[in-house]
């Protein structure tokens, strides 16, 4: 295939697919997890609007997590086992968080007004648990699944940073989907989260090369350092641009309302590209490469055929759903 041996090209393709799927998950579920975190700052009416802005989407957003973990499971089964057993407890926190917010979302609209506050609270708590644990796992993963106290501290910081960035992308979604007072609040939330995110990303970028000599070598050697320089520089530029843009939002004609969300997606993509470059070819840092961990080529091939047909279809009807529910969020109704 493409002039390469299947057992070379297929693991690479699947690592790429998994990467794309995780990135799409982080951006899409990031905004609805972020809105879950921000929901605690909204009034009761604002909570309804905030949740309505993610109502038709959150379920499909979370499916990207299932696809990501599914691809890890099916394409790199050994890595799947090593990573998930090492992260046993944070995975558990993530799952409980996802359960809580998923059901709180549905129950809060079907219970009496008196008990609604409790489901709102659970929606917030579940979103915070999910975001923090995802960041924590990323931190532990970056340090090669090292479970010492020092790594745990670093991972906790990554957790806070990821939660802040979810808050930022959530606020960006609100800027796009809401109006009036809530939109103005969202701009303020976004700027605060943006500061935290920038601080966190800088910290991770500095710590990662020092935690791993291999990654240090990948970044800080000539000519790589010059070729890679655009990555951090571009990220910094997007951050700065976003900072100046949000100072002037919302505009009276609501122009540029979607820009913060797109900019956040760009930041996530750039950060993700940096991580991917750092880790290649490892799937378990410094232990196992994608080639060692991959399933049999004939099994990967049969998944690839299905993926190639189905993924564009999924993209198509996802866009359709976003089009149907485009515009400012309104009250969600079944009838």
């Amino acid at each position: 295939m493409f002039g390469y041996e299947p057992d070379v090209i297929l693991p690479l393709i699947f690592a790429g697919l998994m990467g794309i799927s995780i990135l799409v998950y982080v951006i899409l579920d990031g905004f609805d997890l972020g809105i879950g975190i921000l929901s605690v700052f909204g009034t009761d009416d604002e909570k309804d609007t905030m949740i309505a802005s993610i109502g038709p989407f959150w379920d499909a957003n979370e499916t990207w997590l299932v696809l990501s973990i599914g691809l890890l499971l099916v394409a790199f089964p050994i890595a799947h086992g090593i990573i998930l057993t090492a992260l046993y407890l944070p995975v558990f926190v993530l799952l409980v968080g996802l359960v809580l917010r998923g059901i709180a979302f549905d129950f809060r609209s079907k219970v009496s007004a008196q008990s609604k506050w409790m489901w709102n609270l659970l929606f917030f708590i579940g979103s915070v648990m999910s975001s923090l644990s995802q960041g924590y796992m990323l931190g532990i993963y970056v340090l090669g699944l090292d479970l010492s106290w020092a790594s745990a501290g670093f991972a906790a910081l990554v957790g806070l940073c990821l939660a802040a960035s979810y808050g930022a992308v959530g606020a960006a979604w609100l800027i796009y989907k809401t109006e009036g007072q809530l939109q103005e609040k969202a701009v303020i939330w976004m700027r605060m989260c943006l500061l935290l995110t920038a601080a966190g990303m800088a910290m991770i970028s500095i710590a990662t090369p020092f935690a791993s000599a291999r990654i240090f070598d990948k970044w800080f050697t000539t000519p790589e350092i010059y070729l890679l320089a655009p990555l951090p520089l571009l990220t910094g530029a997007v951050f700065a641009g976003l900072w100046f843009l949000t100072a002037k939002l919302p505009r009276p004609d609501d122009s540029y309302a979607l820009v913060p969300f797109l900019a956040m997606a760009t930041i996530f993509t750039l950060g993700f590209a940096g991580l991917a470059y750092s880790f290649y070819p490892y799937i378990v840092p410094d232990q196992l490469t994608i080639y060692e961990a991959a399933s049999a080529p004939e099994s990967l091939m049969i998944i690839l055929v299905g993926t190639a047909i189905v993924l564009p279809t999924i993209g198509g009807y996802t866009i359709l759903a976003y089009r149907i529910f485009r515009g400012k969020a309104t009250e969600l109704k079944y009838d």
Partner: peptide
Amino acid sequence: GNVAGPLLAYEVLTAFFLEAVFLG
């Protein structure tokens, strides 16, 4: 995994996304 993987993958690809997106 070589057997279970593709079956699970096809479940996610042909079923989960379909139901999740059109559920909204």
